[in-house]
């Protein structure tokens, strides 16, 4: 009888030890996972604001967003509208694209009427859609939010959700 009690006690103690170790191990793994997450300063720096009110039609600007170049083109009336990709602020149309060729990652240049990639000759129209050469897909529209006349890159607004939905 005493043996049975002892056995039960040892079993219970073993289970308690196992559970404690498992919980502790879980915390340890979570801590290790969190240690590799981007630092708060990195997350804060992951938002780029662009003021568009001073841009004229046909103007092209480039900003750095999360280490990547982003091009902002204020479209002229002659440039075809693209309902699925254009960022519209007060009726004005903007092309906002991560300026990286979807072929092998080179940086295309704006020629005045299209984006041309020097590496393998890929071409994108004024909306960032691939029109010629090896690029398999249009350039990527980064997550953005419209705040007045400002485009905030790195935050997702309803306009971005619409573009994302149109792509899918």
């Amino acid at each position: 009888m005493a043996d049975c009690k002892r056995r039960a006690f040892v079993k219970g103690a073993g289970a308690a030890l196992g559970v404690t170790a498992a919980v502790g191990g879980g915390f340890a793994l979570y801590g290790m996972k969190r240690a590799w997450d981007p630092l708060p300063s990195v997350v804060a720096a992951g938002v780029t604001e662009v003021e568009t009110s001073s841009m004229d039609q046909g103007d092209v600007g480039q900003v750095e967003y999360r280490g990547k170049p982003v091009v902002i083109l204020k479209k002229t009336d002659e440039m075809p509208a693209n309902e699925e990709r254009d960022v519209v602020i007060n009726g004005e149309r903007f092309t906002v694209n991560i300026l990286i060729c979807t072929h092998l990652g080179c940086i295309p240049a704006w020629t005045g009427e299209m984006f041309k990639c020097a590496c393998h000759g890929g071409e994108f129209d004024s909306s960032g859609v691939n029109t010629f050469g090896p690029p398999p897909t249009p350039m990527v529209v980064p997550p953005f939010m419209i705040e007045g006349t400002k485009i905030v890159l790195g935050k997702e607004g309803p306009e971005y959700a619409k573009i994302k939905a149109a792509k899918a």
Binding site: K33, W36, D37, P38, V42, G46, R66, G67, K68
Partner: peptide
């Protein structure tokens, strides 16, 4: 990808880890 890099791009955090 962001977790492995510790940043949105390959950066200092990526190099040190």
């Amino acid at each position: 990808v962001i977790w492995i890099r510790g940043n949105y791009v390959v950066e200092d955090a990526t190099l040190t880890r």
